[in-house]
């Protein structure tokens, strides 16, 4: 019962914040349809407004070398530099390249882990979009023995 109350209150707080315009702009901005529809690394990044991505050692992408099951590939991305605005995960050869966009705030460490689907063996990219407009990325090839899309 108490838990239910909490949940309810949480939703009310969220609604109140939204009404007061205190929610960050990103939270209620439209989902980036164009970027998520884009095919290929370059096109997806362009749709997100990133210019000339550069490979950087300060961005790390961790994942398995070989993923047995393409439906669940654990990947983690992080950036060691301050001033990260967004961390983006992309899977190059998926039907839709863009997998996830994390908006980093001051209260969050720029490091995330999640699990993604991969249709086939492909390069996976982690891109850090910086405050100054730079786009830094790390890449890793993950081999997939069983695809996670279609079928």
């Amino acid at each position: 019962m108490r838990r239910r109350m909490m949940l309810k209150r949480g939703a009310e707080v969220a609604a109140a914040l939204a009404a007061a315009g205190l929610w960050p702009a990103g939270a209620h901005a439209a989902w980036a349809q164009q970027a998520f529809d884009a095919k290929g690394f370059a096109e997806a990044l362009k749709a997100l407004g990133a210019r000339t991505p550069q490979e950087s050692k300060d961005v790390t992408l961790t994942g398995p070398d070989i993923a047995e099951n393409g439906a669940v590939v654990p990947v983690a991305c992080a950036c060691a530099l301050p001033g990260v605005k967004r961390l983006v995960l992309l899977v190059d050869k998926n039907p839709n390249t863009l997998a996830a966009v994390f908006d980093v705030s001051d209260a969050i460490e720029p490091q995330f882990a999640t699990r993604v689907k991969m249709a086939q063996t492909s390069n996976v990219y982690a891109v850090a979009l910086m405050d100054d407009g730079q786009a830094l990325f790390a890449q890793k090839e993950i081999k997939v023995t069983l695809g996670g899309c279609g079928g």
Binding site: A27, F36, N96, A113, V116
Partner: peptide, 21 residues
């Protein structure tokens, strides 16, 4: 609010997410 994320279809079924506050 501390974090917002946008996801595409490539995130796995029953999604897992880890972050640090």
């Amino acid at each position: 609010p501390v974090l917002t994320a946008q996801w595409g279809t490539a995130v796995s079924k029953n999604p897992f997410m880890q972050f640090t506050i």
